[in-house]
Amino acid sequence: MRAFTRLDGLVAPLDRANVDTDAIIPKQFLKSIKRSGFGPNAFDEWRYLDRGEPGRDNSQRPLNPEFVLNQPRYRGASVLLTRDNFGCGSSREHAPWALEDYGFRALVGTTFADIFYNNSFKNGLLPIKLPAAEIDEMFAQVAAAPGYRLKIDLAAQTVTRPDGKVLNFDVDAFRKECLLNGWDDIGLTLRHADAIREFEAKRRIDQPWLFA
């Protein structure tokens, strides 16, 4: 996994609540057996005016000028500003794959759905939760100031606004450590293989019906 330490990135605002993972990456693209290449189809139904299909050349498709990410001022954004319950619905990890492949490295919002939040950390994509009042203010600032950027420092757990205001955020110590170092958590878990084997052996005796 790609490590995340610091980021100084252009912010794009997605001002709607309950953005679900079906919207982030529609089902027809889930037929792929690969982990990469989902970026051109991120937010497909909002982003394009026609229906997307796997294997199509997306560069030839008509863009929806109304969709915020299609506005030239947000081109190259690496921070997505989001509303409540972002990433709800399906557990598809294709959603963080698509966001990461699109170019996002961090998401800043109020709340994220549990499975999506978890999946993001596994892909070097940092979801940051801030108080609703801060997020409201940030949406207003982004709208008012083209080129609005945020500086994110994971080690210090801070988000710094262009006006210098520093906001602190919480993150589990273990997730933070894994992301800072880009660790493969399977490798970490396998360091405890003996403990797993011991647990399993005892379980086989105590609850044999689980091992039919």
């Binding site: 982990r35 557990s91 990890e93 963080p96 499975i115 978890n118 999946n119 596994k122 958590d185 399977i186």
Partner: peptide, 10 residues
């Protein structure tokens, strides 16, 4: 638990 693909691999 519903899980993502990285967790399926884990």
């Amino acid at each position: 638990h519903g899980i993502g693909t990285s967790e399926v691999e884990h």
